[in-house]
Computed example of a mutant assay.
Amino acid sequence: MVVGIISSFLCFVFLVLDHYFRIINGSTLGLSLVFKILASSCFLCLGLYSFFRCKDKSDEFKKVSLLILFGLINSLLADLFLELNFYAGFLLFISAHILYFCAFSVYSKFSLKKWIFIAVFTSVFSVCDWFAPWFEFGILFPFVIFYTCVWTFVMAKAADSFKWNSIQAKLMPVGIILFGMSDILLQFNVFPAESLSKEAASVMFIISNSFYYGAQLVIAYSISKNYLKDKPQQ
């Protein structure tokens, strides 16, 4: 718990410095990028600590933990490449979500109810996005739909973690939901309409990043206990 608190504190200190040099100072790379990677390194370090701290890992939970760790590594790389090349960062974030999905698939199957939820959520969200006056997606809108679909798959699968009593298990889907909320708010910064003020986009960017790093820290902490050794609730 102490390591988690320290990692979270340092992560948000670095995040504040990133926002300062990016938004107030006007720097797009340089120190801003350095502090962004340092912030991302905090959730990766917490994930590594959680993995090695958990001494009673079953083979099943070891698979879950390793897939989560690789997802955190991909997320750190995505944070870096998103600043250098949008498409490279986009693909790395997709791969991170796929790794999280594979982690949750270790201990449960995919039901028909989840397919229905994914279809309905993706359709409704995409329509709302398209008609929202704050965004201009242009030719990138298919990428937004695809990303939304992938994240919805992960969210639907992560919900299975609520079956276990462990707080670590219940934190897993919370992290995925926060991840998705950060992406929703990030649209204000990545695809702003001309009518959207820069100040509003900047505020949304700050909130989005806060949700994103909070999500990754929660996901990293969630592998600190082997909750799969307990029987899930029916």
Rank of each mutant, 00 (worst) to 15 (best):
F137Y: 15
V144T: 00
I118L: 14
N74A: 11
F121R: 06
A96S: 14
F104K: 07
F121N: 04
T152C: 11
C149W: 13
A78N: 01
P133Y: 03
Y147L: 11
F146K: 01
S75D: 08
C54E: 15
P142T: 03
K157I: 08
A88R: 03
S75Q: 14
S41F: 13
A96N: 11
V144S: 07
Y49V: 09
D59R: 10
L92V: 08
A159L: 11
D160Y: 06
F110K: 06
F153S: 00
A159I: 14
M155E: 01
V144C: 09
H97Y: 08
F93R: 05
A39Q: 02
I116R: 10
I145N: 01
L33F: 04
L66P: 00
W151E: 08
A78I: 10
S50W: 09
S108C: 07
R53W: 04
L92S: 01
L38G: 11
V120G: 10
L92G: 00
L76S: 09
I94Q: 07
I145P: 01
F104T: 10
A88P: 02
C102E: 15
C45A: 14
F70Q: 07
F52Y: 06
C149H: 10
F125N: 00
A159S: 12
K113I: 05
S108V: 03
K157T: 04
F143E: 02
S41R: 04
I118P: 06
S105K: 15
I37C: 09
S40K: 05
F117I: 07
F125R: 00
I116D: 02
K114H: 04
N74D: 03
F43E: 02
T152V: 14
L140P: 02
F121H: 00
L82V: 14
F86M: 11
V120K: 13
L80F: 15
S58M: 09
A158M: 14
S95M: 13
S123E: 00
D129H: 06
L46S: 01
F125C: 08
L140K: 09
L67D: 03
A156C: 11
L140A: 09
L33A: 12
H97K: 05
L84E: 11
V120S: 07
F153P: 00
N74L: 15
F90A: 07
E136Y: 15
V150F: 14
L80M: 14
F117L: 12
G138C: 05
S75M: 12
Y107V: 07
L72S: 07
V64E: 12
F110I: 09
L72R: 02
K62H: 12
L77V: 08
F146T: 00
F146M: 11
V144L: 02
V64D: 03
V120N: 04
S161D: 15
L99K: 08
C42H: 01
E136G: 11
L48C: 10
L84C: 03
V154L: 13
L84A: 04
L46M: 10
I94F: 05
V124R: 02
E60Q: 12
N85A: 05
W134R: 01
L33K: 09
F131V: 15
A156D: 03
A132T: 09
Y100H: 15
A119C: 12
P142M: 05
Y100L: 13
L77I: 06
S108F: 10
L99M: 13
